[in-house]
Amino acid sequence: MQDFWAALAQAFALILGAEAELVEIIGLSLRVSLSAVAIACVIGLPLGAVLAVGRFPGRLALSVLVNALMGLPPVVVGLTVYLVLSASGPLGVLQLLYTPAAMIIAQTILVTPIIAALTRQVIEDLSGEYDEMLRAMGVSRAGMIATLLWDARYSLLTAALAGTGRALAEVGAVLIVGGNINHVTRTMTTAIALETSKGELAMALALGIILVTLSVIVSACVMGLRASAARMAYA
């Protein structure tokens, strides 16, 4: 117990002192996860929208697949990306293994299905409401998708935040493809795993506190968005 309180006090000292290594790790974590979420949005938003309102063979099968991919185990994604990027893998020449880029790729694969599946659900619901009106106005299919995406903006932002939460908390994939290399690919979660195993509880706790704080902030954003969306009926 003594250890714990001492470690906690040290952890707060690290946080309050904005200790350089801590800042570096947080910065990398945010950079990797937010990049992954941004890319996942670019892919997932249109994909989800097309799955919701598109008419093409295999649409249903693709929707089921995307939903199934939502539950992908991070370590399996990590392993797959590792195999693809490793020296003997098909993309080995790019030499991306153990770089932040590899971590971004792995997290993008994890987050894209979440964004796409949530987008599909949200757009499908909204389309049920708008479809007849938009068709009556003669809106083109592309115009419909644009209209639906914009009018679902609050729900979609919520989906993006859900993706951010998953990416920040994820450890398996980034550990495998990033390698937890000091100053290069060490993220909050991989650092916590390492520091804990080394018995460096203060650093692990400090990162844990930051991680929890970030997830609380993300949740608060989600709830705030919901409330303001309902209150403003999306002006």
């Binding site: 708008y130 007849e132 009106m133 106005m137 003669g138 115009g143 209209t147 914009w150 009018d151 009926a233």
Partner: peptide, 26 residues
């Protein structure tokens, strides 16, 4: 042909933006 439905469906935007969307469509 233009339709006003029994239960009008308006976009989740301002009144002016609803008209802007329509005019853009037209």
């Amino acid at each position: 042909i233009a339709v006003v439905f029994q239960r009008p469906v308006l976009l989740r935007r301002s009144a002016a933006a609803n008209l802007d969307h329509a005019l853009k469509t037209y």
